[in-house]
């Protein structure tokens, strides 16, 4: 009997180490892969150019949609009377959640020039036009033309927003801002973000894509 115990004690560790080694090998095989460094670098050099994509997107997809965007006063009137209809007809978003984006256009008089934005008065309401911080996904998502499924990397999707915002800041906001004066009439087109669940129509900020 002691002999048998001894034999078992010797066999068991081998079995244990054997199974352990197989598991480690399977894990290692499925954990790493090897490639030539030159090949990987060549692929990386042809990576997604978010800035070029954003420029084409603005010119070919966003601008045509801005031309047919609803007037902001008409949109807010519809939002106050039939919220669901307005959201269904005019809003877009690439992510789930209550925040949805609208393309809008309109005309108003500049009533105040603030550090980060302009306050304008349209025929029906007071709005702000973003001037300093152009951020978020409003411009990218509001058109409904941005197809998220064409992207494999989340970073690329985020970079499109970032580059689009940079482009607008450089080509739309910077040339306009120094010339803006209180009392001037401004024609704008851009995007707004609204929370469907907690709708607030008193503090609407327009992210401009075009200013005249």
């Amino acid at each position: 009997m002691p002999l048998l115990e001894k034999k078992n004690n010797k066999t068991l560790p081998w079995l244990k180490y054997g199974i352990g080694s197989v598991v480690v090998m399977i894990l290692a095989y499925n954990s790493v892969y090897f490639r030539e460094l030159d090949e990987v670098k060549a692929e990386a050099s042809g990576k997604f150019d978010a800035a070029a994509f954003a420029k084409t997107f603005l010119e070919k997809q966003l601008s045509p949609k801005l031309a047919i965007a609803p007037d902001i006063d008409d949109l807010t009137t519809l939002l106050s009377t039939d919220k669901n209809k307005a959201f269904d007809a005019y809003s877009h978003a690439t992510a789930i959640g209550n925040i949805r984006y609208f393309l809008v256009k309109g005309q108003g008089v500049i009533t105040q020039i603030n550090e980060n934005d302009l306050t304008i008065q349209t025929p029906k309401q007071q709005l702000t036009l973003a001037m300093e911080f152009i951020y978020g996904n409003a411009l990218r998502d509001a058109s409904g033309e941005f197809d998220i499924t064409k992207f494999t990397k989340t970073a690329d999707i985020n970079n499109v927003s970032s580059e689009l915002n940079k482009l607008i800041r450089a080509s739309v906001v910077f040339p306009f801002r120094p010339k803006a004066k209180v009392g001037d009439t401004v024609q704008f087109a851009g995007a707004i973000a609204l929370n469907k669940e907690h709708l607030n129509l008193t503090e609407i900020e327009v992210v401009p894509a075009s200013l005249k």
Partner: peptide, 9 residues
Amino acid sequence: NLYIGFTLL
């Protein structure tokens, strides 16, 4: 001239 890539695992 080697690149060691890692899977999610």
